[in-house]
């Protein structure tokens, strides 16, 4: 296990070559599959192509191997394979998000990107920007609110069917092929981040025209009568990419990274900083610490703001 782990923690290389290879493989849905080693996992549908060249492929356990091109089979993961992969998560990682409240001007680009990524109705928010005011004297500020991906997630505790679950890398996902739509998790979430598909999903027409495999890491296709929620763009994380909202922000609000590496990368400037230093220097805090939910999302206080303060919220706490 330890050798495998050391192997894996180095897997996300950022050198150009590997990155583009990953991109390439993601695009065509290619997963290492050598017929000789029988590495073709069950649950894949495949179509073979013949050629004599050798190609490098990444196996499903993250090993780089070279095999004859004739033996490469292009595989498309089916729902079950995507589900089992999605439930396992990425070993050795502990995703963490930092949101700098001083930088948010409510541009709502994160919301736009997210709603597109996850096929949401305009009224469904995986991430929402709220105008907050902590007390009558303090100035209001904008607060992007994704899922907190708590380390003690009340929503997961109450789920009767293991439809929502927490993975080893900290991400809380929802399997809408499992969900029975009881909405207990919505009642349990103190941050009100969970969203229900009350009606047919936004892209229902698209799903009808082009049926697609359900990917638990993007929660697409959305399904009527099931829960959906912020997923930290788990599909992007697998590909070494920052979550959609983080990348979409034009104002340097979001940092995202791996707590195990003690580093977070800003989605706008792409500068990587030391997580512990960032939180220490800026007095980072988490929402509703007193509830013991242990969120994986940190906020930097809205101090030294560069944008004008928003108008006072009229529906404070109601």
């Amino acid at each position: 296990m330890s050798s495998e782990q050391s192997n894996k923690s180095n897997a996300p290389k950022k050198s150009k070559g590997l990155n583009s290879r990953r991109d390439f493989m993601r695009k065509i849905g290619l997963i290492g599959a050598a017929a000789t080693t029988g590495a073709v996992s069950s649950g894949f549908t495949s179509s073979s192509s013949a050629n004599n060249e050798y190609v490098k492929v990444l196996t499903s356990d993250n090993k780089l191997v070279e095999i004859p091109k004739s033996q490469v089979q292009e595989v498309k993961l089916n729902t079950a394979a995507l589900q089992s992969r999605g439930r396992i998560g990425i070993p050795g990682k502990r995703w963490v998000m930092v949101i700098d409240l001083a930088k948010c001007r409510n541009a709502r680009e994160c919301i736009k990107g997210c709603q597109e990524h996850h096929h949401l109705h305009p009224y469904q928010y995986h991430i929402n920007t709220l105008v907050m005011q902590d007390n009558p004297q303090s100035a209001p500020y904008n607060m992007p609110k994704p899922c907190m991906h708590c380390d003690n997630p009340p929503c997961v505790s109450v789920c009767p069917v293991d439809a929502t679950f927490k993975r080893q890398d900290g991400v809380v996902l929802i399997d809408n092929e499992r969900c029975i739509g009881c909405r207990f998790c919505m009642a349990a979430c103190p941050y009100s981040v969970r969203v229900f598909n009350w009606e047919e999903p936004f892209q229902a027409q698209l799903y009808k025209e082009e049926p697609m495999e359900y990917d638990v890491e993007t929660n697409i296709p959305q399904k009527k009568g099931t829960i959906t929620k912020c997923l930290f763009s788990a599909d992007c994380l697998r590909d070494g990419e920052l979550p959609t909202c983080v990348r979409a922000c034009p104002n340097e609000v979001f940092y995202f990274g791996d707590q195990n590496e003690d580093a977070v990368t800003n989605g706008t400037t792409r500068q990587t900083v030391v997580l512990s230093e960032l939180l220490e220097k800026n007095a980072g805090y988490r929402l509703m610490e007193e509830l013991g939910t242990k969120p994986r999302v940190y906020y930097l206080p809205p101090k030294d703001r560069v944008f004008e303060t928003p108008e006072k919220p009229d529906n404070h706490h109601s």
Binding site: V158, P160, V161, R178, C179, I180, C182, R183, F184, F196
Partner: peptide, 21 residues
């Protein structure tokens, strides 16, 4: 009250002993 009443059996197939439901 269920969004997916046809999945009622999931409660028995995948039931989580931690859930009050």
């Amino acid at each position: 009250d269920m969004g997916r009443p046809e999945r009622l059996l999931h409660v028995f197939m995948y039931g989580r002993v931690q859930s009050p439901i």
